[in-house]
Simulated scan of single mutants.
Amino acid sequence: MALDQAQPIPVGPRHSVALDSAEALQLLGSVSFGRIVFTQHALPTIRPVNHVLDEGEIVIRTHEGAALTSRTRQAGSPGVVVAYEADTIDPATHLGWSVVVTGYAHLVTDPVLLTRYQSMLHPWVGQAMDFAVRIRPDLVTGIRLTPADT
């Protein structure tokens, strides 16, 4: 097996500029892909998922056998603590933004809301996704990576 001989493209220094929570949520809502972080067997687990932002909350769809479905089904109030991350960072320039939301995830049980989310959010995996999870953002942080000379 040959090793990848590609050399990284050198880039200049970057500034990390903090985003306020409103701008961070607006950026998160501008993309449809992110990563959810939760615990499974007392260890952190990360899954790539697609999402929508609905009334300030992140909504993802899951399936019957998903660990997150099981965890949120078992959770009482206030829900399961999760983190959600989304970003857009250019691979060549290393400029862009990253947003991390920490909050409580709840399984959506209202059939009207579930139907609504199924019409709004179309999974990109070839599997039935009959469940939805809402994440209430309690802590929203974000950064914008800019060239050092701006």
Rank of each mutant, 00 (worst) to 15 (best):
V52W: 03
D54P: 04
R136V: 15
H122N: 09
F38V: 13
P13D: 11
A42T: 14
M129V: 10
G142H: 08
V101L: 08
P123R: 01
T39V: 10
N50G: 03
Q26P: 00
G142S: 05
F131T: 04
H41C: 10
I89S: 04
A66C: 08
T72Y: 03
T62H: 04
V52F: 01
A132Y: 04
I89R: 00
A67I: 11
M1R: 02
H15E: 06
Q74Y: 03
S70K: 13
A83P: 03
H41S: 13
P8R: 07
D149R: 01
G34P: 08
T45F: 13
Q74K: 06
D87K: 05
L27K: 08
S119N: 12
L95R: 11
P123W: 05
A86I: 10
A2F: 07
V52N: 01
L68I: 15
Q26M: 12
A18L: 05
R71A: 15
S30Y: 05
L27M: 06
S98D: 05
T146Y: 00
D20I: 09
P147C: 02
E55T: 01
P8M: 04
R61Y: 11
A24E: 15
A22D: 13
S77E: 14
A6R: 15
L28W: 11
P111R: 03
Y117H: 07
P111D: 01
I58F: 07
H15T: 04
L121T: 14
N50W: 01
P10I: 00
Y117N: 03
Y84F: 15
T146M: 05
E57I: 00
T72G: 08
A42S: 14
